[in-house]
């Protein structure tokens, strides 16, 4: 029940970015992981790997601050994420298993709500964002009538309208077809190559060189 890390990218500036120190989590008296250390800085992505039930989703929720660490700490720019919560959150986009797309609202309405909830907004218009994720022509259909993959694309469009440096994505490729997976992959690699940060759980290989991509393995 240990977690091993491999190829931690050595960042140039020590304080910038996300840093995880000695993180541990137990659920219902069962230890999921402990002593987890890694650092994520600008221009890097981390892929979290591990079998089902190894605590991948739990780890991501912890990194967002939705769940409190049982031990260790998570730092953003050198400060604990619970300390300056609002500053941390305005830098973060999270898409979880339940991605928060309302079935009763159209994709456009969904994005409009997300836009108002975010701290900053991109020059990219909502229509453009929907087009980039391949939903052109579906703007005004109730999201409930869309397929599971299309609904996930609506959620992913949020990443384009709220330009946050840190993306935390839980299985972003689930239910998305091959062509769409390519689009999403390009989105993520573009983001990283432009100086963004991404953490994702997925077995889908990302087209990034060793310098930009590292992995964290969780074992049961």
């Amino acid at each position: 029940m240990t977690a091993s890390t491999s190829a931690i990218p050595q960042s140039v500036s020590v304080d910038k970015g996300l840093e995880v120190c000695n993180l541990g989590c137990s659920r219902e008296d069962r230890e999921l992981f402990s002593g987890l250390n890694f650092r994520l800085s600008s221009g890097h992505a981390i892929q979290i790997e591990g079998p089902n039930g190894s605590g991948k989703t739990t780890l991501l929720r912890m990194l967002c601050g939705l769940r409190l660490p049982d031990e260790g700490e998570i730092l953003w720019n050198g400060r604990d994420i619970s300390e300056e919560r609002s500053a941390f959150l305005s830098n973060l986009s999270y898409i979880g298993h339940a991605h928060g797309v309302k079935g009763e609202l159209t994709p456009l309405e969904n994005l409009r709500v997300s836009q108002a909830m975010a701290a900053r907004n991109n020059s990219l218009s909502l229509d453009e964002a929907l087009e980039r994720v391949g939903l052109f022509g579906f703007e005004d259909a109730p999201s409930r009538t869309l397929s599971a993959g299309q609904r996930r694309r609506v959620a992913l469009a949020r990443l384009l309208i709220n330009p946050t440096p840190l993306w935390i994505l839980d299985e972003p490729f689930t239910a998305i077809d091959i062509q769409g997976q390519k689009q999403i992959e390009t989105m993520i690699t573009d983001h990283v190559l432009n100086g963004g940060m991404a953490i994702l759980t997925s077995h889908h290989p990302l087209d990034l060189s060793e310098d930009h991509l590292s992995s964290v393995k969780l074992c049961t």
Partner: peptide, 20 residues
């Protein structure tokens, strides 16, 4: 909102949850 994850998104909004 709890079931479809919207509530999570609200908690992760930089706006204070009390206002939402």
């Amino acid at each position: 909102d709890f079931e479809d994850g919207s509530l999570e998104q609200m908690l992760l909004s930089p706006h204070p949850m009390t206002v939402l």
